[in-house]
């Protein structure tokens, strides 16, 4: 008896299935393949190409990473103002939406390309490569890549930069290294920003740095207040140091 409706068609149905299986090509078994492909391979490929292009152009590229609102764009505006007018600098701005940051950079006197990532929470090397197409012909010596404000996702994506700078504003709290260790693990410099606000917030620089150096032993650190200009000289010196 048929299990669906109780009719007596079981035998015929089985026969039909048998006929169909005889007509269809022989069934091949499921295969198991060993592949070993890195999921980051595509991004890493573009990052390697970017690094090659930047080296050839003798351009130092820095990937600036931080939470949103830690002062990346303000630091860049002040940096551009502090550098000699003839010094060739370019900026890539990463945000989910708007052209606002690129406009601020252009107003401060440097060419800028805005990358809008839409739903993306970080920059990827292929988009940076497209921005390089626009910026490298002007032969910049220094390229700032302002990543999307986020202490998590940008950590995993190599953009082809030579150095990674992690900004941490004093208003964010000194426990951030332990909460977001991945982004500290590959940083070349931690830059404490908004230090003019230190009298008003409970931020212990030594404690924060001790946490950061548990993850990245020997991590260099600088402090700046972009609005007051404190620490900008040391920041410019660090930029000028050979990698």
């Amino acid at each position: 008896m048929c299990g669906t409706c109780g009719c007596d068609q079981t035998a015929r149905t089985a026969q039909t299935v048998n006929d169909i299986s005889r007509l269809s090509p022989p069934r091949t078994e499921q295969r198991r393949l060993q592949v070993e492909i890195n999921l980051m391979a595509q991004n890493d490929h573009w990052a390697a190409l970017n690094r090659k292009r930047l080296d050839k152009a003798q351009c130092l590229a820095l990937n600036l990473m931080s939470s949103p609102g830690s002062g990346k764009t303000t630091l860049l505006e002040k940096t551009l103002q502090a550098l000699p007018g003839s010094f060739p600098v370019a900026v890539i701005e990463g945000d989910q939406q708007t052209e606002q940051d690129a406009e601020r950079i252009r107003a401060a006197g440097a060419p800028a390309v805005q990358i809008n990532t839409g739903k993306g929470c970080h920059l990827e090397a292929q988009r940076v490569s497209q921005a390089l197409d626009q910026l490298l012909p002007a032969a910049p010596h220094l390229l700032f890549i302002e990543n999307v404000g986020n202490l998590v996702c940008p950590a995993g994506f190599d953009l082809g930069e030579q150095r990674r700078v992690l900004l941490l504003s004093v208003t964010e709290g000194d426990d951030k290294p332990l909460k977001y260790p991945d982004i500290f693990a590959r940083a070349d410099l931690v830059l404490f920003t908004k230090t003019d606000l230190l009298p008003y917030v409970d931020f212990n620089r030594d404690r924060c740095l001790e946490f950061a150096r548990r993850i990245r032993p020997g991590l260099p650190a600088l402090s700046v207040s972009a609005t007051r200009g404190d620490g900008l000289t040391e920041w410019l010196e660090w930029l000028g140091q050979p990698g």
Partner: peptide, 21 residues
Amino acid sequence: AFGLRIESGDELMISHLEVTP
């Protein structure tokens, strides 16, 4: 002591696939 030298742990690998023709 802090500052362990991490040798592996950030793998993001496709290791195997099971496929049909």
